[in-house]
Amino acid sequence: MAVRRARDRVALDLWQVIGAVEDVPATGAATTVLMEETLAVSRGPAGIAVHLPETGEALPVLLRYGYVWTSLGTPPAELFPLPEWAEPDRRNLNAGTVGVHVSAPRAIENFLDMAHFPYVHTGILGAEPHTEVEDYDVEVSDSRDEVLATRCRFWQPMAATTATGAIMADYVYRVPHPYCAVLYKTCPAEPHRRDVIGILLQPVSEERVRAHLMLSLIDHDNPDTVLRRFQQTIFGQDKPILENQVPKKLPLDPRAETPIRADKSAVAYRRWLRQKGLTYGTIPAAA
């Protein structure tokens, strides 16, 4: 096994996202950083290739959900499933890639968190006095090895680009990968279906990420730029909060921070990370 700067085998053996397929240049190579290693990404005769310029080592490549995935270790055969992405009438796009000075697990918790909507996404995903987080269900699904939060509901003034007024939005959250989370929320355009939004985090280092915002929406009207702008506005509101979180790495010691019932999904996520033995981007609990 090649020597890596990062030590965490669990994280090294995962598939990690490194960018949108469409952003790989037609000629030449783009460089990016994954877990402190500089990678070169290029298009070759056999498709997209990733290698480490430092040693010339070629890395495995997987193209899924519009993104390029690679691994610095020995990855599993497949990535987590996302069947909705294949539905023919969905708008699948990368809404943007944003660098954030925070650990990947902190960004996941922010994505799972509803209580911040009225304060951070005021007038869009929430507004005072609608601050209550009703009870919801969380489980760690054994069959799929993911954290699943269901029956989540929150009052939203403007839940999506297709919204025409405030709705009580229903959410389901999945964390199918330590650094990736996906949500399914009420689609104002077709209430029986769900818009899918994913945050795919590329850990640049333990305290820095590139966040790739994945959309798979049902919206037949708005152009890409409008969909992108909506998502970028939301994430632009989260970024300064995330960058003002101390410590930047996620503390796994239960006594580091004060959870409330609304944080059930974060509590389950921290426990799941502890069970996996994943440490990259966390402050492990003292034994």
Partner: peptide
């Protein structure tokens, strides 16, 4: 960063 009192670590406190 100092640890919080133990009673705050649990859900619900």
């Amino acid at each position: 960063i100092e640890p919080l009192p133990a009673e705050l670590a649990d859900l619900p406190p």
